[in-house]
Lab assay of single mutants.
Amino acid sequence: QKEELKEKAKEAVKRGNKDKARELLKRAGISEEEAKKIIKKIE
């Protein structure tokens, strides 16, 4: 489940939808700070 949400978040970032990505990562139980780092890494 968590990995699936991370994959979806990756796709969202690639489409330029960072808010959606952050939302998905939060749903995966990832903190706001972690989510920001992950999104930065994907960009």
Rank of each mutant, 00 (worst) to 15 (best):
Q1P: 11
Q1C: 14
Q1K: 11
K2V: 14
K2N: 11
K2P: 08
K2Y: 15
K2I: 15
K2W: 15
K2H: 11
K2G: 09
K2F: 15
E3P: 04
E3M: 09
E3Y: 08
E3G: 07
E3C: 09
E3V: 06
E3R: 06
E3N: 10
E3D: 10
E4F: 13
E4V: 11
E4Y: 14
E4D: 12
E4C: 13
E4L: 13
L5I: 08
L5K: 02
L5P: 02
L5C: 04
L5G: 01
L5H: 03
L5F: 07
K6V: 15
K6I: 15
K6Y: 15
K6M: 15
K6E: 11
K6S: 06
K6H: 13
K6N: 06
K6G: 04
K6F: 15
K6T: 12
E7Q: 11
E7G: 04
E7T: 08
E7K: 10
K8Y: 09
K8L: 14
K8E: 10
K8W: 10
K8A: 13
K8F: 07
A9K: 00
A9Y: 04
A9G: 01
A9C: 05
K10I: 14
K10E: 08
K10T: 08
K10D: 03
E11N: 06
E11S: 05
E11T: 06
E11F: 03
E11A: 08
E11M: 08
A12G: 01
A12V: 02
A12N: 03
A12T: 02
A12P: 04
A12K: 02
A12D: 02
V13M: 11
V13Q: 03
V13I: 12
V13K: 02
K14Q: 10
K14F: 10
K14W: 10
K14T: 06
K14A: 08
K14V: 08
K14M: 14
K14H: 11
R15M: 14
R15A: 15
R15E: 12
R15C: 14
R15Y: 08
R15W: 06
G16S: 02
G16D: 02
G16K: 03
N17P: 01
N17C: 13
N17M: 11
N17I: 04
N17D: 15
N17W: 10
K18M: 13
K18C: 14
K18G: 05
K18N: 10
K18T: 12
K18S: 09
D19S: 08
D19L: 09
D19Q: 11
D19Y: 07
D19P: 05
D19H: 07
D19W: 07
K20S: 09
K20L: 15
K20R: 11
K20C: 12
K20F: 13
K20M: 13
K20Y: 14
K20T: 09
A21P: 00
A21N: 00
A21Q: 01
A21S: 00
A21T: 01
A21I: 05
A21H: 02
A21R: 02
A21V: 03
R22F: 15
R22Q: 10
R22A: 11
E23D: 09
E23L: 06
E23S: 05
E23K: 04
E23P: 00
E23G: 03
L24D: 03
L24V: 03
L24K: 02
L24W: 05
L24F: 08
L25K: 01
L25C: 04
L25P: 01
L25N: 02
L25W: 00
L25H: 00
L25I: 01
L25D: 02
K26Y: 09
K26P: 00
K26V: 13
K26T: 10
K26A: 11
K26Q: 10
K26I: 14
K26M: 15
K26H: 09
R27Y: 08
R27K: 13
R27I: 10
R27D: 10
R27V: 08
R27G: 06
A28P: 01
A28F: 05
A28Y: 05
A28C: 12
A28I: 05
G29H: 01
G29R: 00
G29E: 02
G29K: 02
G29I: 00
G29V: 00
I30R: 00
I30V: 11
I30D: 00
I30G: 00
I30H: 07
I30L: 13
S31V: 03
S31K: 05
S31P: 09
S31T: 10
S31N: 06
S31Y: 03
S31G: 09
E32V: 07
E32D: 13
E32M: 07
E33H: 08
E33P: 05
E33S: 09
E33W: 06
E33A: 09
E33V: 08
E34S: 04
E34A: 07
E34K: 04
E34W: 05
E34V: 06
E34Q: 06
E34F: 04
E34M: 07
E34I: 05
A35N: 00
A35S: 07
A35Y: 04
A35M: 08
A35R: 02
A35F: 04
A35D: 00
K36V: 13
K36I: 14
K36D: 15
K36L: 14
K36T: 14
K36S: 14
K36M: 14
K37L: 12
K37F: 08
K37P: 00
K37M: 12
K37Q: 13
K37V: 12
K37E: 14
K37W: 09
I38Y: 10
I38Q: 03
I38W: 12
I38E: 02
I38F: 14
I38A: 02
I38R: 00
I39L: 08
I39M: 06
I39P: 00
I39Y: 03
I39D: 00
I39N: 00
K40N: 13
K40R: 11
K40Y: 14
K40L: 13
K41C: 14
K41I: 12
K41A: 14
K41L: 14
K41Q: 15
K41M: 13
K41E: 15
K41N: 13
I42P: 01
I42M: 12
I42T: 06
I42Y: 14
I42F: 14
I42G: 03
I42W: 15
E43N: 04
E43V: 07
E43M: 09
E43Q: 08
E43D: 05
E43Y: 07
